[in-house]
Design a protein around this nucleic acid. Structure first.
Length: 498
RNA sequence: CGGGGUGUAGCGUAGCCCGGUUAUCGCGCCACGUUUGGGACGUGGAGGCCGCAGGUUCGAAUCCUGCCACCCCGACCA
């Protein structure tokens, strides 16, 4: 029973069971929980606050690069859905389908409802797993001339993919995301757009989420269904598995042709537009958790923390609390003046120890504790979440100190993750070494590959590792395929992935 | 969807094999008091369609059948 008591307060350690640690952390940090709907999560206020910070920053970045938000329907008529064959085929196995539009009282079971058999839809509606079909069908009416291009649209939405096995944030049947959809005059412009958005994602994930990523291209087999080229950002989690954090697709003229989106070019000739689409999802929450957090709970980079600083008063008497509150209010005013988000946790219902533990679990970057002792000395105690270190500092210059610490924590989280990532990229030249690294060290494996689907497939079957990407910054280097021994021009990155 | 496992109070659980008083314990919750520099303590109290639906039986948390959900391992995937 003693053990249960511990279990209720402490997280399972990462070393003990990484996946259990992750699940417990999501629940205990109050980020999300499972719902009554199979595979669908409830994102709780604290988790949603983090997602909102991500959204706000991404939305700003999209707008700065010329995009506008719009909203398209949740449902896609089947006939539209199937128009782009590869896209339809790729998503067909995981679609939720609306077939009826009405319920009625069940004549056999009083008080129960049943689907009204009379209310069958003429045409089934697919709950969007992605919105290319409905959007391209709409774009058709928006584009006539090269003057209508480029068309740069983003939508924030939910999508549904009927996944077999779900995990909070990492893979849920319904998830939140943004999907950008653009139309361009030329192939070159569209490719540039796909690359631009891949850069935007890399920027955001590295600078705001403090997660280092590798930018690359997907191989043909890993490419988005309906794309000619898929750009991606790949991150490495603490357990050595890779996580695809965002994708940006060059769609060629595939959707333009499927939905007959044509425009008159400058020469007056009709041409199909060139397209891209790109997206990141609530899966980024999973990446955030698995990159930085530790056995004490969530660790948030300051730029995504709903509260960057929490102030905890420690007092015995009402007079103590009054004096502390006065000092705290002055600190809060200063910090807010410097655009630092801060919360004064003056709940009387919990003792300081419990508050410390809770804020640690929820990843608040900085904690300031103020007690009677501090009031007497003109000091406060500052504790860092990332290093768990504490120091007593004077009130003079506190504001600058906090500002500096916030920047330092952001950088330090990134650098720590970067070092881990770089330490886990291993070059191998034999298949034995490949397997050994995969089983012992884990992480990314940089190896030569002959460029064929067959080799990729066989390696996947034998080792469960897939080609995460062909890195964009990779250098050309003659070599031989680690599996087939055939010639190769460059190394690609393999890993086991989420 | 295939293999394995688990469903008992908000959470974690005992009981189930071998059916039979008022379903066990801890955490949490509520009230009062004492507390407050790392998850406080005492006293008292509330809280259960034992996952759901059938069946067997005088009697089911316990046995049988079906279903559902969750977890782990595969296949699929952002």
């Amino acid at each position: 029973m003693c053990q249960n008591k511990d279990m209720s307060k402490k997280l399972t350690s990462r070393a003990e069971d990484y996946s259990k640690w992750y699940n417990e952390l999501v629940i205990k940090a109050d980020l999300a929980e499972n719902s009554a709907v199979r595979g669908c999560m409830v994102i709780k206020p604290y988790g949603y606050a983090i997602w909102e910070k991500m959204q706000a920053e991404l939305d700003k970045m999209f707008k700065e690069t010329g995009h506008q938000n719009a909203y398209f329907p949740l449902f896609v008529p089947k006939s539209l859905f199937e128009a782009e064959e590869k896209n339809a085929e790729g998503f067909a196995k995981e679609c939720a389908i609306v077939t009826h539009y009405r319920l009625q009282n069940d004549p056999d079971k009083p008080g129960k409802l049943r689907v009204d058999p009379e209310a069958k839809l003429e045409e089934e509606l697919i709950v969007r797993p992605t919105s290319e079909a409905i959007i391209w069908n709409t774009f058709k009416g928006w584009v006539q001339s090269y003057r209508d291009l480029p068309l740069l649209i983003n939508q924030w939405a939910n999508v549904v993919r009927w996944e077999m096995r779900t995990r909070l944030f990492l893979r849920t049947a319904e998830f939140l995301w943004q999907e950008g959809h653009t139309a361009h005059e030329t192939k070159k412009e569209a490719v540039t757009e796909a690359e631009l958005m891949n850069n935007v994602y890399a920027n955001f994930v590295q600078n705001f989420m403090a997660i280092p990523v590798i930018q690359g291209l997907k191989t043909e087999s890993e490419r988005f269904a309906g794309a000619d080229e898929t750009y991606c950002i790949e991150a490495l989690m603490q357990d050595g598995k890779a996580l695809q954090a965002g994708t940006s697709h060059f769609l060629g003229q595939n959707f333009a042709k499927a939905f007959d989106v044509k425009f008159a070019n400058k020469e007056g000739k009709q041409d199909h537009v060139w397209a891209t689409s790109w997206g990141v999802s609530t899966r980024l929450m999973g990446a955030l958790i698995m990159t930085h957090s530790d056995d004490h709970g969530l660790v948030l980079p300051p730029s995504l923390a709903p509260n960057q600083v929490v102030i905890v008063p420690i007092y015995r008497s009402e007079e103590d609390l009054e004096a502390i509150t006065e000092v705290a209010n002055a600190i809060i005013k200063d910090l807010r003046g410097s655009h630092i988000t801060v919360k004064f946790d003056n709940r009387t219902t919990y003792r300081p120890g419990a508050k410390f533990a809770q804020h640690e679990l929820q990843g608040v970057p900085l904690r300031i504790a103020i007690g009677a002792r501090d009031i007497a000395n003109g000091t406060v105690e500052i504790a860092r979440r990332d290093t768990l270190s504490k120091e007593v500092v004077g009130l003079d210059g506190l504001n600058d100190k906090v500002k500096a610490l916030i920047e330092e924590i952001q950088d330090s989280l990134y650098n720590k993750a970067l070092k881990f990532r770089d330490d886990h990229i291993t070059e191998v030249d034999t298949f034995d070494a490949f397997k050994t690294v995969l089983e012992t060290k884990t992480g990314f494996i940089s190896a030569h590959w002959d460029g064929t689907n067959e080799t990729e497939e066989q390696i996947k079957t034998l080792t469960k590792a897939t080609i995460r990407c062909i890195p964009l910054n990779g250098k050309l280097e003659a070599g031989i395929c680690v599996f087939s021994g055939k010639p190769s021009k460059r190394r690609v990155l393999f890993a086991k992935a989420y």
